[in-house]
Design a protein around this nucleic acid. Sequence first.
DNA 1: GGCCTTCTAAACAAGA
DNA 2: TTCTTGTTTAGAAGGC
Length: 442
Amino acid sequence: MGPIIGMSPDKKAEVPGMQEERTGLRGACGAGTLPEAECASSPLATSVDCTGGSEDEELTNLNWLHENLLQNFALGGPEALPSGSPLLDIEGDHGASQGPSSSSHSSAHGKGRERDSIKSKPPFSFSLLIYMAIEQSPTKSLPVKEIYGWILEHFPYFSNAPTGWKNSVRHNLSLNKCFRKVERSLGKANGKGSLWCVDPEYRPNLIQALRKQHFPTADAFCTPPASPPRHLFLQGCSFKESDIDAATAMMLLNSAPGHHHHDPCDSDTPLDLSQPHSVLVSSDPKQDHNYSSSSSAGLQRCSSRSSSSSLSSLDEGACERGQSRRRRAGSEGFHSDEDSDLWDERGGRRCHPAAPAPRRSPSSSASSASSPSSSSSSSTSSVSNSSSATAKRPAAKRARLEVKLELDEELKEAAGSLLHLAGIRSCTEASKRVKSKRHSRK
DNA sequence: GGCCTTCTAAACAAGA
DNA sequence: TTCTTGTTTAGAAGGC
């Protein structure tokens, strides 16, 4: 094992070079990031043509994502691509299996750069890689091995890298509070290891991390409203028409309850987007991968977050939980009732009914039980109310259905707006350009 | 320079 | 016993 692989001078040499290369890549994009069925069901996902995208020139990092990862998303991810990732398809080294059409979406000048880019270390942190892997999974939860597999599949860089990266992945899973260990289902009780899923509370953070890691300039365009309507969140975070933002937003949509791909941990929350901590994107850049053990910094982050966005004490509780999850578990009530309720209602415990939440403080405090910001509990209390009033169940069910339908409509609207902002516009511009060309020819 | 984040390495334990 | 998984600690590097 070499001394330092990723952070070695080789990285220093690689990454900037990669970024330079990315700068030149303005070609194909995977504007649609709908995994699996979404992709199939959404013609936009594959038909959006960004070849004419001359906007966002400063978002150079976008290109790497466009050229590599997002295409995977757009094409449906590993599930939809059993034969290999588009990364492999466009790579010269894998050219044996490369058909002439496989690179039709790539820019003409992109191949060499693509090859280089996938040989370079991905500009994602491990936590983001893990996040993407988990989010790409149909069940929104993956065992470590499959996380390895996803990373390997989408980032062939790691196939040649020493196995230390696996250690890093495990380290991230263990240490990063964004990820939660979930006991395997009973049917897979024999399977080794646990499933890992993204903590719904931290999903926005991860999304923002993803966004910020590549689109720092997009932040100016994401202004979390004080009291956001559900669809406004998506519109408000439409992130300056960049495709990665469409991707992250699609992740949001993907994780939204009205969506087909329900997070098993979200499956029963009809109004997930109404929960501020899940819809608001923090404006604090330091919250992205806060698996640091520094409590003071964590407190600062908490305060800044609560002040900069209308996050509730629930979020602060999450923040506290983050600070203390590992090393100070039990010393403070990071696991508030609200927190646990939220997690319960979102299925976190449903995923592992018999198992106590691993490495979460057993002494979940009631510190925030009286918090006024229990939007999650409000959405879930109706469920419990309906269960208590069995006579009114049909009416309640109907009401819930209506709410769901409404939410679906809103999500559709939001998705439409988002797609419009993110991709369709450039698509239409491209088509306009083509039309004008034809017109001029005529 | 200090702090924070991220990455990497290593050691260790537990389980398959 | 070997391998995998999960946890923990430590240190280095880079950014702010």
